[in-house]
């Protein structure tokens, strides 16, 4: 894949290009004010728990895509 340089960082150029600069005005959703004023939603929390995957299930999911776990060290702090 071709490479482009941004600062000191050699990154690969995206085959699809960038996502553009579309301006989304007046967006409602997860902004700072909504986060501050939010009331807990226990029903959604319960729903979220029902979608959780077990370690074993996720291992099978990885295997189906031929993902292989690697031993990679964290960088020195």
């Amino acid at each position: 894949m071709p490479e482009a340089s941004i600062g000191t960082f050699a990154v690969r150029a995206s085959p699809c290009g960038t996502s553009g600069t579309t301006v989304t005005t007046g967006v409602r959703g997860l902004d700072a004010e909504q986060i501050s004023n939010a009331q807990p939603n226990a029903a959604e929390l319960g729903k979220m728990a029902s979608f959780a995957a077990t370690k074993e299930a996720s291992s099978g999911f990885a295997k189906r895509a031929k993902l292989q776990a690697r031993q990679v060290d964290y960088p020195a702090p």
Binding site: G29, L30, Q34, I35, N37, A38, Q39, P40, N41, A42, E44, L45, K47, M48
Partner: peptide
């Protein structure tokens, strides 16, 4: 739960 109160799944 609070974050889910700001935006649902």
């Amino acid at each position: 739960a609070r974050l889910l109160g700001a935006a649902p799944l």
